[in-house]
Design a protein around this nucleic acid. Structure first.
Length: 492
RNA sequence: CGGGAAGUAGCGCAGUCCGGUAGCGUACCUGGUUUGGGACCAGGUGGUCGCAGGUUCGAAUCCUGUCUUCCCGACCA
């Protein structure tokens, strides 16, 4: 029977959970705050990884892998970084269990197996990586180091949500070392551009590039650049960050190099990352009340073919005909699934693949064979049309591109309609509550005002957009002088 | 971590107040009829009621503890 979904209007949070669970992206697990990523969800992640990984390599980076555990003494070396993450760390204190003498069949932590030094399960890897880089770097000839790792990290969040905030999540973290400040800043900006490119052109999720204010900055960074996306409920999602770390980690870990003139200097650093949170962003950007909507470039299944038949004889004819179509699709690089299972009827399959967000559905039955055509349905607009079997691969390839760009345009239109310039406090509060979305408003530049606004409205400064025009104005809260508008929103 | 809700068959739920050995829908299996938007008929399989203690002749039900999840806050990518 029907898998009932909540609608966005009814209950946005429940709608999101329904899509993730019933669309079979992920499941809850027996572990607090940790989810099981199911094959369909993982296939999506693999497609994201593959695209990003290629972009990293095209910009000169290599993959490596560093340990899951960070000795406490290393973890605390960079003070601000340690402080920032201290409240959400999982810590390994023992290395052995033993059978509990007072409780048959149960295990207990062996008190004799206490570690000399606790190990922190990495919430991020700067510490262990910079401790390693120390041994890799002596001369300017060793620079730059351009390394990325695909890994899992653990942050003991108080409140978790599937993909958006889980205690363990998958991500990539790039960690680079440079001889000059300018080069490190250029790297930070370059990777931000890579993220923005990926978000817009693969995920079809428009983003605003910007710089975080001091209070929203990554712990241990000089500057945090970010991409901010807007979800359908009008809340912002930080989709990726790229940090200019200055010489903070080099100083904390004593990483120096000698330049051409044989003078010693600390190394300049960057780090940048995106996570499985992007999947949550993708879901909330495109999906509708019928289910997920996958952008073709990342969709695990781009085209599903549903045969319509009565009896084995018709099925055999269709199988034969469709196998040619499938081969042609595959040759053209199209990810296609032919669902000729007999235990679900066509109507069931239609609903199921809509829920899964497959961009294009092709239905083909005896009637179509007579007319040398198929029925083609697109997920983004729900339009159905009869198209010729001749040139079908080209038709489908072109339609996938069109759906990809339609999704981006649709999301961009929504996003642009939800960027509002306001000049007064009343307007600010009204827009935040009624219209929602991003708000461009003047701010006096002080952390105190930023904090006060957050307290009063739950809105935060998402970023100072990179291409921000300078413009004299008055802070919406204090009325003090301001030189530019900044981007506010309520956020995930 | 504070406030609220929940955990019973793969999934969605009833039963819990008032203790007596578990039920409905769906899914699944078998057979048949079906198949262009979530099929129908008949017959079946499947649960130590989240977990651990306790009270009792007897616990899904009462008591204590604990784990997980959802929603709203504080914290965060």
């Amino acid at each position: 029977m029907a898998k009932e979904l909540s609608t966005r209007a009814q209950d946005y949070s429940q709608w999101y959970n329904d899509l993730v669970l019933k669309g079979e992206l992920a499941d809850y697990s027996a572990v607090r705050g940790c989810m099981v990523i199911k094959p369909y969800g993982y296939a999506l992640w693999e497609n994201m990884q593959a695209s990003l990984d290629k972009m990293f390599k095209d910009t000169g980076h290599q993959n490596a892998y560093f340990p899951l555990f960070v000795p406490k003494s290393l973890f605390e070396a960079e003070e601000k970084n340690a402080e920032g993450f201290a409240k959400e760390c999982a810590i390994v204190t023992h290395y052995r269990l033993k059978t509990d003498p007072n409780n048959k069949g149960k295990l207990m932590v062996d008190p004799d197996a206490k570690l000399e030094e606790e190990l922190i399960v990495r919430p991020t890897s700067e510490a262990i990586i910079w401790n390693t880089y120390k041994t890799w770097i002596q001369s300017y000839r060793d620079l730059p180091i351009l390394v990325n790792q695909w890994a899992n990290v653990v942050r003991w969040e108080m409140r978790t949500r599937l993909f958006l905030r889980t205690a363990e999540f998958l991500w990539q973290e790039g960690h680079t070392a440079h001889a000059t400040k300018q080069e490190a800043i250029a790297e930070t900006v370059q990777m931000l551009d890579v993220y923005a490119d990926f978000a817009e052109n693969w995920m079809a999720m428009p983003v605003i590039k910007g710089v975080k204010t001091a209070s929203e900055r990554f712990a241990g960074a000089e500057d945090t650049y970010c991409i901010e996306a807007l979800m359908q409920d009008g809340k912002a999602l930080q989709a990726g960050t790229s940090h200019f770390l200055g010489q903070n980690f080099a100083k904390a870990f004593e990483v120096k190099f000698s330049d051409k003139n044989n003078t010693m200097d600390y190394v300049w650093a960057t780090s940048w990352g995106v996570s499985t949170r992007l999947i949550g962003g993708l879901v909330m950007t495109h999906s509708d009340d019928e289910g997920l909507v996958m952008p073709p470039r990342l969709a695990p299944i781009q085209v599903v073919i549903v045969p319509i038949f009565k009896g084995d004889e018709q099925k055999a004819i269709l199988d034969e005909k469709v196998s040619g179509i499938v081969a042609s699709f595959k040759a053209a690089g199209i990810r296609v699934k032919y669902d000729n299972t007999d235990h679900n009827r066509p109507g069931w399959k239609f609903a199921e693949y809509e829920l899964k967000g497959v961009p294009i559905r092709i239905a083909v039955g005896p009637r179509d064979l007579e007319n040398n055509q198929v029925e083609l349905a697109r997920r983004d607009t729900k339009e159905k049309s009869a198209v010729s079997m001749d040139g079908l691969t080209e038709t489908v390839s072109a339609l996938l591109l069109e759906i990809q760009s339609n999704l981006l345009n649709r999301a961009k239109k929504y996003r642009d309609e939800h960027i509002t310039k306001v000049d007064t406090w009343d307007e600010f509060v009204n827009v935040l509550d009624a219209k929602t979305g991003f708000i461009l408003a003047h701010w006096d530049g002080t952390p105190e005002t930023e904090e006060k606004i957050k307290e009063l409205t739950k809105a935060t400064i998402r970023c100072i957009p990179l291409d921000n025009p300078l413009e004299d104005g008055k802070c919406i809260l204090t009325g003090n002088a301001s030189i530019q508008r900044v981007l506010f929103a309520r956020a995930y």
